[in-house]
Simulated scan of single mutants.
Amino acid sequence: MSSNLALPDYPLDDLRVVTARTELAALSHPLRDTLLDLLLERAATVGELATAVGRPPSTVAYHVHVLLDAGLLRVVRTRRVRAIEERFYGRTARIFYIGQVPVDALGRMTSPVADAAAESAPAHHADTLRAILRHARIPRERAAEFWDRVFELTREFSALPRGGETTYGFVAGLYPTTYPSLPDPADAADEVGGTDGSGTREVS
């Protein structure tokens, strides 16, 4: 696990497994997803979040309260400005991991890979996109082990010190496919008998 977990600037749990319908519903809106992402950097007020996303404070306040009600956000500190008490909101966990999703809730959730594909289109056209796609026929257990390593890399990316002028996106996915694969060598040898390497059987 990465040792660089200084961000954000408030205490929070490392991982929260999300399974409740209220939690899943709260995570299913793209603006709420953006707000949660912003709060990985530091705690922020509704006004700061509204400025960041270019939306009216009333709209952002509504979505913040949805996340509060779902237990995904909390007030981490307050500050009195003149006669008004400002609230700073933070996440309740560094990572919200989607657990078992009820079948009837799947239709309301978007795929992070699909979202990233749409978001990365301008970078693709500008030739500034770094991406790779590979396929491997491996046992389910090895896939789970590999995903754990990717998950740790995601933690590291999320905790990088903020700086520069560009916000980068990072997406990772691991999923079963119907992609073709070569047969096992032993199976291939049994299938063709003895061959000369060209796929034709030798006749003695």
Rank of each mutant, 00 (worst) to 15 (best):
V66K: 12
T22K: 06
D14C: 05
Y168H: 07
L27Y: 02
L38E: 02
A117M: 03
Y97P: 02
L68E: 12
T177E: 12
A20D: 12
L174K: 04
D33L: 04
V113L: 15
T34F: 01
P183L: 04
E145G: 11
E156V: 03
L38F: 04
P30L: 00
P176A: 14
P122A: 11
R149F: 13
L15G: 02
D115W: 07
R94W: 11
L182Q: 12
L36A: 00
L153K: 09
Y168M: 02
D33H: 13
R80G: 00
A159D: 06
T166I: 14
A6M: 07
E202G: 10
I95T: 14
R137V: 04
L24Y: 00
A144C: 00
L38R: 03
L72E: 06
A172G: 14
V60S: 01
A143M: 12
T19A: 08
T22W: 02
L133H: 05
R134L: 10
S181Y: 14
P8N: 08
P180V: 13
R77G: 08
A114W: 01
L106R: 03
A6Y: 09
T19I: 01
V75R: 08
D37I: 00
D115H: 11
T178I: 05
A186W: 05
L39Y: 08
G173T: 09
A117K: 03
D104F: 02
V171Y: 07
E156H: 11
G54H: 08
L182K: 11
E48T: 01
L12C: 13
Y10K: 09
G173F: 02
D14L: 15
F170A: 10
A172I: 13
